[in-house]
Design a protein around this nucleic acid. Structure first.
Length: 219
DNA sequence: CGCCAGGCCGTGT
DNA sequence: ACACGGCATGGC
């Protein structure tokens, strides 16, 4: 079985086991983008605190957040960690959207490649955040390669755990034939199963070829 | 107390 | 092209 076939199988199996995950959990595309930035290197529970604070402050729209004094923004997202950097990043996205795309909706409406390049040009937005925005806020085929994707696909020997980001992303997008619905579910399902087994139960024994990681493995 | 979480960036090899 | 430390809070 090829890697692509195993990825399709994994998607089908996980979907049967867990059901649709309903990602991205948010009330608007703007909230999705905010969440994508805030969750960088941060537990989702902490992101929820920050999102709730923003909502209470009425700052969960591009216009409202633009009006918000920077010190307020920084204070509101504090629970999400790395808050000085993340506040700057959110501000930069909004500024760039206004200057170059006539606003946030204009940015999201840009062609996928232009949207991705623009997002990547913002300090604090890397490939995973950009691909999460493409997939979950703009509805384009993309695959955000996060720590869980690396872990799960790596332990199943479908990829080398430290393969370059774009290699992994392209492999999955090709495997799922650019099917946005499947890419959406697959990313969410991989996070779900990764939380269930790969973290709380390292070496759970369910991944093929798990025994040789420390003995012979490593290139 | 230590480790980790739905990363990214600047610096040094 | 990689390795590494810094960025920061909160839960277990």
């Amino acid at each position: 079985m090829t890697g692509a076939e195993r990825i399709v199988d994994m998607h089908d199996l996980l979907l049967d086991a867990y059901g649709p995950q309903g990602w991205w959990p948010s009330r608007s595309s703007f909230e999705t983008v905010v969440g994508a930035v805030l969750t960088q290197g941060t537990a989702w529970t902490n992101v929820e605190k920050a999102i709730r604070a923003l909502r209470r402050a009425g700052a969960l729209s591009p216009e409202a957040m633009t009006e918000l004094p920077h010190a307020h923004l920084t204070a509101l997202i504090r629970p999400a960690g790395f808050f000085t950097r993340k506040a700057d990043t959110l501000r930069s996205v909004l500024t760039k959207a206004d200057l170059e795309f006539g606003g946030f909706d204009g940015l999201l409406s840009a062609p996928p490649s232009e949207l991705r390049e623009t997002l990547l040009s913002v300090r604090g937005v890397g490939p995973e955040t950009a691909d999460a925005v493409l997939l979950y806020a703009a509805g384009h085929p993309a695959f955000p390669v996060d720590t869980y994707a690396r872990r799960v696909l790596g332990r199943h020997r479908i990829i080398d755990e430290r393969a370059p980001y774009d290699d992994v992303a392209h492999l999955v997008v090709e495997a799922l034939e650019g099917n946005e619905r499947m890419l959406n579910e697959f990313h969410a399902l991989v996070v779900r199963v990764g939380k269930d087994f790969c973290r709380s139960r390292p070496r759970c024994g369910r991944c093929p070829g798990e025994g040789e990681r420390r003995s012979t493995g490593l290139k």
